[in-house]
């Protein structure tokens, strides 16, 4: 999952994080965000399987089978880390003690609501912690490719897949665009270098307004 597009998305997401935030990373592209934080920005990672203070991927000889993240991948322990039971972990999440959750998406609708847990007719039978994170995190960022692998649009007026929550995300970041969700609608606030408002209009199925912001220090990634 560490293609150049995924890395570009991860960097664009990372530019929205502030120093000291408590952040929960979903599986896939969100996992890459930790490796692409801007200089001077350090966040504290929470993982819903019961750990605060998640460190980077260990070297092969330092892998501990009892130390994994929510994607079941080996991680390490930073100074100040702590472990807790699942009920306490989700208490943190639902109780709004996690500042930012970064989640992948199958689709997003015109209100910024996310569908990322089920595809009708496909043998997918799992929701994990996605619904809890959407309900409880103070801010939710969706990190996704602009289009699906088959070229279909992922940001659509109405999702074909079941929603993960009635709460919209706060920010949608793709390799082309960043949308803020404001007053129940999408606002294009940033266009990636190498992309254009025209491309985004052609490839986005949901209505949006345009109010570009100067990317304060945000690294602009060329799309390849």
């Amino acid at each position: 999952m560490s293609s150049s597009v995924s890395v570009a998305i991860a960097k664009r997401v990372a530019a929205h994080l502030t120093d000291g935030e408590i952040v929960n990373l979903g599986i896939g592209i969100p996992t890459l965000v930790a490796d692409h934080l801007p200089d001077g920005v350090d966040v504290v990672l929470q993982t819903e399987n019961g750990m605060l203070g998640v460190g980077p991927t260990p070297t092969d000889d330092a892998i501990d089978p009892n130390l994994v993240n929510a994607g079941k991948l080996p991680v390490s322990e930073l100074p100040g880390a702590s472990y807790f039971a699942s009920s306490a972990s989700f208490g943190m999440i639902r109780g709004a003690h996690v500042d930012t959750a970064i989640l992948g998406a199958l689709q997003l609708d015109g209100q910024g609501r996310i569908a990322n847990w089920s595809i009708p007719g496909k043998p997918i039978l799992g929701v994990g912690g996605a619904m809890d994170l959407l309900v409880g995190a103070r801010r939710v960022i969706a990190a996704t490719t602009h289009l699906a692998k088959d070229g279909s649009q992922k940001i659509v007026a109405e999702t074909a897949f079941p929603l993960t929550a009635d709460r919209p995300v706060d920010l949608i970041v793709t390799e082309h665009a960043t949308f803020a969700v404001r007053d129940g609608g999408l606002v294009l606030i940033d266009v990636a270098e190498g992309s254009s408002v025209e491309w985004i209009e052609e490839n986005t199925g949901a209505a949006f307004t345009v109010a570009l912001e100067s990317a304060a220090g945000a690294p602009q990634e060329a799309v390849r």
Binding site: S86, S87, F90, R94, G129, M131, D132, V135, G136
Partner: peptide
């Protein structure tokens, strides 16, 4: 949802008859 699963088990062990949760 994973948090509802965990809390249902916690409640089961803690003498809680039921609870309301936003998730889902």
């Amino acid at each position: 949802p994973q948090g509802t699963l965990a809390e249902s088990i916690r409640a089961g062990g803690a003498g809680i008859g039921a609870f309301y949760v936003r998730t889902g």
